[in-house]
Design a binder for these strands. Structure first.
Lengths: 333, 333
DNA sequence: TAACTTGCTGTAAACGTTTACAGTAGGAAG
DNA sequence: CTTCCTACTGTAAACGTTTACAGCAAGTTA
């Protein structure tokens, strides 16, 4: 059992076998009409030689790689998996391929990534970042391929952007206050990240609107993950004075559920918990997590659509989309 | 604010600016030694022209794309995310890029994927599949690039393979029987999949060894996910007669935890639960899930390493690795 | 009939690299 | 002095496509 070894057939071979010019073969493959008589000859030659067009040749000549680069900050966070899934949903229907950029990028690594896109290995770029930096802004200006930005990182105006409208925390707070009263703890992620800053701002404003100084009711985890969440909750003195907890993402909410379950504090009877993102995780946890839906799969789909549309028509006006978050009620609140 | 628009500098431009031949530029870029005098001239020209080598040109001439294609069946399953992460861990240290193939592939779509790899858009292929089929076997024979297979899908011998040694279920069963006695339910995924078949076989044999007919204690979910798991458990009559549940993966275990929590059956006091895969999910759930570690991140890393090593040295002997599963004790058992 | 138009064809020139090859300069060895 | 070697250089030919262009046959119009 040995793998076939003879070298690949090229378009020239197909042309010779079908007794037509290489140009006709190319045109046929790319869907242009050719003389009716030669069509079957080409088809036959292609299949008998098992010809597959060479991507590099195509890419070089046509300056199109048929690849889209997606950069997600952290593949361990289910929200990015869901976004990736959305992107795939769309790309898989086309003949574009998905390239996954490295994750966990520092500012410098982000710069290197954006820079490297100048090497023409992708036709479009979907960018997410937890961090914001003037240098990233600057690097984006030099980018020669169309880009879509998901999230609140600021770059220049000539990109499509997809944000989630502010007010997610307000939404959660309204729900909780109506149902359980005003005694609410906010479990945030690191404020060194964009979502951390925004969600904290959302919480403080929402509390402000109710005449409460929210800053005394915030605890900040060192990461958007379970471990950091548990550690942060451990620092809260007398947690049972709270009636509900808003968590800045679903992983932190999972931490809250574990923390409370360890203390035998019933959810939602004693303390209610609400997450943000509404990832797949929400319905996996027990009790199932009430969460603010950030429509991540949809945002991924939208990003992919925007890129494809712009590749089709580069003159299109740039779109700045804002998605409305929505509360999805399950068991935890 | 407008993106720079003039066309990219090529190696010719760099050569002209540095007043050397294009060959010298190429050699310098690829790390060969050049005359000491011209080195700074090239460096200077590259940075002043902001030159980045064109991937397509390189790929075409050198028949190397610097891309590895990874095919995972289902991005929603945390085990595949973890494998992906492992692959990234290794590739990100090199100048290879990661391509993510479409997910949820039927046999036909798998065939098309394997076939398409003939288009030279990737230098190597890491293959995982839930399904097995003689046609896949056949398609693999024609594959012209090195491949690594993760899992138990059978192809030809000229690939590196990474399996998990059988005995995972035996491991779980021994642990449970020792601790809680022999009253064990097995919550399996679909037996139309390779893991479903293997894990059921493992359970039946392990029970057999203890003189028990395991087949009466198996319930099969229609998918490896929470919803299917809940539905399957709903079909079990009088679940409280069991003292423990082995679940064929962590998602099914999450389903079990939710199911039991709804019925107010305490875990592990009344019924213990054990999962398989030991994904990130295990430590997110509450109670934290005891699970059989399949070392997915490591398997991903290994797969990437194998591919890279083979690309460096195609004559290397093919490796058939078997990883020993390991029980990781947490709270649920 | 002539002059256009339509619809297709093949030739040949790109696209931006890498690399085989021949050439050269300078030093070492005889 | 010649010969040989070492270490580098530039020229030019690939790699496999797409596509501008000119050519041609057949059909349409006047």
């Amino acid at each position: 059992m040995t793998r076939s070894t003879k070298s690949r057939a090229t378009m020239h071979d197909v042309a010779r076998e079908a007794n037509v010019s290489i140009a006709s073969v190319s045109r046929f493959i790319n869907g242009q009409t050719v003389r009716e008589e030669i069509e079957p000859r080409i088809t036959q030659a292609i299949s008998s030689l098992n010809f597959k067009p060479n991507s590099a040749g195509r890419a070089l000549r046509a300056s199109k790689t048929q690849q889209i680069c997606l950069s997600v900050p952290d593949i361990s966070n289910p929200v990015y998996q869901t976004i990736t899934k959305g992107v795939q949903n769309i790309l898989n229907k086309t003949d574009y391929r998905l390239m996954l950029a490295p994750r966990n990028l520092s500012v410098e690594e982000n710069l290197a990534l954006i820079d490297s896109l100048d090497s023409n290995y992708a036709d479009g770029f979907i960018f997410l970042s937890l961090v914001d930096d003037p240098r990233i802004r600057k690097a984006f200006m030099k980018l020669r391929i169309p880009a879509v930005v998901i999230g609140n990182v600021e770059v220049h105006d000539e990109v499509d952007t997809i944000k989630v409208a502010s007010g997610a925390v307000e939404l959660a707070l309204t729900y909780l206050v109506d149902k359980y009263g005003g005694n609410v703890l906010f479990l945030n992620g690191p404020t060194s990240t964009i979502p951390g800053r925004n969600r904290e701002k959302g919480f403080l404003e929402a509390m402000q609107n109710r005449g409460i100084d929210g800053s005394k009711h915030v605890v900040e985890a060192e990461g958007f993950n379970v471990e950091a969440g548990l550690a942060a909750l451990g620092r809260v003195k007398n947690i049972s004075k709270y009636r509900s907890i808003i968590c800045a993402n679903d992983l932190l909410a999972a931490a809250a559920l574990r923390f409370l379950s360890t203390l035998k504090i019933e959810v939602p009877n004693k303390i209610a918990v609400i997450g943000i993102d509404n990832t797949d995780l929400a319905s996996v946890l027990s009790p199932a997590l009430t969460s603010i839906d950030y429509k991540s799969e949809y945002r991924g789909e939208l990003a992919a659509k925007f890129i494809l549309e712009r590749l089709n028509d580069p003159t299109k006006a740039y779109r700045k989309i804002s998605i409305a978050p929505e509360l999805v009620e399950r068991e935890s609140a």
